[in-house]
Amino acid sequence: MSVADVAASGGLQATRVTKRFGGVVAVDAVSLDLRPGEIHGLIGPNGSGKTTLLNLLSGYYAIDDGTIVLDGETLNRTPVQRRPFLGVARTFQKPRLLGSLSVLDNAMLGGWRDARAGFVGTALALGRARRDDAVLRARALELLHGVGLGGVLDRRANQLDHAEQRFLEIARGLAMRPRFILLDEPAGGLTEHEIEQLARVVTTLRDGGIGVLVVEHHTDFVFRICDRVTTLNLGRMIAQGSPQHVRNDPEVIRVYLGA
């Protein structure tokens, strides 16, 4: 698929992106395109550059080489705080929630891009801040019920168990109304049953037209739900394609899956 095709279909495309930390090349000329309405898996051994690539896509690190394009627009220099406004959301390997706030408040924070009221207007209690809150609260409520946290809306986030924290991060990301969401090891630490629920949530996102990038070690989970899979090793891409294709790739078996 050429650059023009991806731009036409709308997508988040990384082309030959490279990131160096000192002398180490963490991501070495990796290309990956994430299309709306698809689940793209990113797998590889520890230290292969998966999370680094995710951090490049979400803007936490600046890329040293290559391009990142969203709908034909170059994002290379777009700061991390602007990416949510362009429709790119993410979650974290270790959930980063606001422990002292309720589940509902945490999810509402995700709607920041749609908060229109300024500081002075909010201080003076002009109607806009209240309307912002009402809209974002309603949206967060629906999403929290949707991911299965409807029963713990008022619980402080630091009292949640691990699975609830993971699902809350997804709800917060969805409150941004993203077109792409990047999930960093969403199945990490979850039970079999919880992974099953996660799979249902992620496929629902895809069916809703969202492009989902899943960085994951649970290969069963990845091969089951992903439409395409990219495998990294030592910062380089070693295989890309359908789950079937990647699963049977001899190089992937050698460095990651094992015989």
């Binding site: 979400s58 993410r90 980063r96 606001l98 002292s100 920041w112 500081f119």
Partner: peptide, 29 residues
């Protein structure tokens, strides 16, 4: 004034900066 700010989106954004500026930036604060 401060009560109005603290209970709306600005208050949540402020607490996000205090507790996790990485999370704050990830939602566009």
């Amino acid at each position: 004034f401060t009560w109005n700010v603290s209970r709306r989106m600005w208050g949540r954004a402020m607490i996000a900066l205090r507790d996790s500026d990485v999370a704050a930036a990830s939602v566009g604060v």
